[in-house]
Write a protein that binds this DNA or RNA. Structure first.
Lengths: 331, 331
DNA sequence: GTGAAAGCGCTAACAC
DNA sequence: GTGTTAGCGCTTTCAC
């Protein structure tokens, strides 16, 4: 592969001039610039990004570290982040941690090691974060979807508590009395907040907070199915369920189907995260929708802001959720 | 941030010895090794990956370039690739091209520029590929899900033609007579092959190949919906539809619902790609399932093979699909 | 406006 | 075994 020296030699200029032309810096004689461009083409020269990064001490790439690549919620964020990144001359690479702190750490390591320009991350845990080294190194970072309790980092989240509250209050208003909740891993702020909203709504509706009606699962399909199967097996099963993410909702529907339960009539259901197929199941699925694109866009904009002004103080943005009432939550 | 020189100084050894300890190369006096490790900890030293890559001429990272991050088929591949990567000491970063050749080119550029160790890619087009520079540079590359006609690259795909054939033959066997096909962008080999399978099955069943029954769409939800809406508006509408990917199938179901058509009875439907929610819609959705994890795993293994043996010849692996008959494809 | 040269942090010959 | 040193390819002072 051709280097900047090859180009310089062919164009009969110095490597410095080639660099200037390539980066549009400083004033270069148009004639020399022309010669450089011609040589670049002739040699099909591509700058070595690694050498450039070493010299500049930062790459043009952002890392978007998400906790579950198969969760449509997270993949929907991507577009928002990408659009802002491209507008600011950055590329986005995705890293999937699978809710695993060890893998989260490994990817933070890669981001740090490759001197990436910024990191947007949905942390696997609100406390034992792997972000420390990143922050110490001064790399711009923003958490998305979830917050971090252990360190001061800017974040963009949705109103999880309110979303959980509205879902549950809606079920109560529809006359359901034993409303269960399938929660996510409580080490995530989303799970904790959605559960808190559920509890608040129960209290307000004067419904008892039966511990047996709360199941902590793992935000995955199988976990949701298992949790619902257990709930149904109880002596006094629920007549409604608030399921706190889409993957678990899918599992819940499967478990309900396998148990021969009629959705809506026998057991009402509201899921967190709206999905394209929510209107297609029958009865159609009531959900708490999140502004996923906005979530990604906002996080990316905060990253740009941080990169521009390193003194920028930590900010936390909360975007609204929206209850979408469909067929699964009334009799 | 501490450098290898800082560590060397503190441990009273040379940078070369630090490097040896860090990389487990050569024999190092255990006492020196201990001192190095201690200094590394004390300084919380992290090797600069960029400098390392510049020196070694290759990074430890693989790029997985997929054409649509919101298509569950592609996100399902990721796990297979990741598992093999990790077993071989690589990290995987995902790049989303959105079926856009310009963005494909940009990400190939990043992979090249950052000297990534290998690329697994589902190309946006079978001809105008952006892979050229990558292959010229000798970077190990494998296409996944789709093939490339324009250059000799190893690939892992599924039996698209057979999958299309089986879906269509099944609909014919169920007594449907005017079977339509919603195809993907024909510049992808998957779309071309699935369509070819559809045509072959029609011919074999003695059904006429009415051009009006074939709609070329874009592998996206809205495209699938629009195509089906058009099909239904025709003077002589189809009584069954083979939809060639899951996103378009979702759109098809929506369009069918909006048109008030009873699925199965009035219009039979089979979709390509199985999905967790396929059994949940009603009637449950018949599909052609693909071994997504295997697809990812196999591609990654081929990449390892290529990296190990640069003389390895181009191979093409085809994995089987499986027709899953459910409720949407009979009366 | 242009070029010479130093240096980013690491690894791998090579010399000891 | 261990240290010295050159150099990966680029950008950026600094001198002209």
């Amino acid at each position: 592969m051709a280097t900047i020296y090859d180009v310089a030699r062919l164009a009969a200029v110095s490597p410095a001039t080639v660099s200037r032309v390539l980066n549009g810096r400083g004033d270069v004689n148009p004639e020399l610039a022309r010669r450089v461009e011609q040589s670049v083409r002739k040699l099909s020269y591509r700058p070595n990004g690694v050498a450039r990064n070493l010299r500049r001490k930062v790459a043009a790439v952002w890392a978007l570290v998400i906790s579950d690549i198969e969760n449509p919620h997270f993949t929907a964020l991507v577009r928002g982040v990408e659009d802002v990144a491209r507008a600011n001359g950055h590329s986005v690479v995705l890293c999937n941690t699978d809710e695993d702190l060890e893998r989260e750490r490994a990817y933070i390591d890669v981001a740090l090691s490759e001197r990436m320009a910024g990191v947007v991350i949905s942390p696997a845990s609100d406390r034992q974060s792997a972000l420390g080294p990143l922050l110490d190194a001064g790399v711009p970072a923003v958490t998305i979807d979830r917050r971090l309790r252990s360190s001061p980092v800017s974040s963009v989240v949705v109103s999880n508590r309110r979303g959980g509250y509205e879902a549950t209050a809606h079920l109560a208003a529809q006359g359901y009395r034993r409303i269960a909740c399938v929660a996510g891993p409580l080490r995530t702020t989303t799970a904790a907040q959605r559960l808190a909203g559920y509890r608040a709504a129960l209290g307000e509706a004067g419904l008892p907070a039966d511990k047996a009606l709360v199941r902590v699962a793992d935000y995955k399909e199988a976990g949701g199915a298992a949790a619902v199967a257990e709930l149904l097996r109880q002596p006094d099963p629920p007549d409604a369920i608030f399921v706190t993410n889409s993957l678990m909702t899918m599992g819940a529907l499967r478990a309900l189907g396998e148990a021969g339960v009629t959705i809506g009539t026998e057991v009402g259901i509201v899921g967190f995260d709206d999905l394209p197929w929510a209107p297609l199941v029958s009865p159609s699925l009531s959900t708490v929708a999140q502004p996923t694109y906005e979530l990604g866009r906002t996080a990316a904009e905060m990253l740009v802001h941080q990169a521009t002004d390193p003194e920028a103080r930590v900010r936390s943005v909360t975007l609204p959720t929206e209850l979408r009432v469909r067929g699964s939550s009334h009799r």
